[in-house]
Amino acid sequence: MISAGRRHGPDEGPPGTDDEADRWLVGRARGGDRSAYEELVRRHRDRIYRIALRMLGSPADADDVAQEVVIQLWTALAGFGGTSAFTTWLYRVVVNRCLNHRRAQRSHRELEDTDHPRVPGPERRVLAGEELQAGLAAISALPEEQRVPLVLVQLEGLSYRQAAAVTKTTEATVRGRLARARATLMAEMKDWT
């Protein structure tokens, strides 16, 4: 059997992906094949973790979200229609999971005793390089609507069209929000030396 799709078609996924192989694996995973699902996870595990880290700025939070995504995807595959690249859909799942994670943290933090300063997390020990830490911190402090297009387009290399598909907005919206994100970062970095 020869699949109809093409590796470099107009609806291809982000750079470094193999849509046809993903589609084959998704088809088998949806049929209950756990080994196909595990292979999908193996192929995308670094991408899942990287997006989470860039969205949340903390390795500890990225760990949590990556594990949640792996479990969520297994049950959510049934809802993947296959009309877009698997990676486009994966980006959407990971981004939404990150946003939910952040919202849950925020509401949890509101209940914390503010008299007790927060102890620096393990990320302080894990992330090397002041530039990298400063960048992650600044990006994770962006408002949601600016952070998502910045991560997708600026950092992950998606096109405006692909980012619009992930966020279910228009290319013009992505373009405008990305421009605002860049301006915000420039302003926030004013003390960076």
């Binding site: 973790y49 390089g129 530039e131 960048g135 992650l136 990006i139 600026q154 004013k190 960076w192």
Partner: peptide, 14 residues
């Protein structure tokens, strides 16, 4: 000022 964002962009965590 963009250097920290570039650092994130080139960082390829596994």
């Amino acid at each position: 000022l963009w250097a920290p964002v570039r650092a994130v962009s080139t960082h390829r965590p596994q």
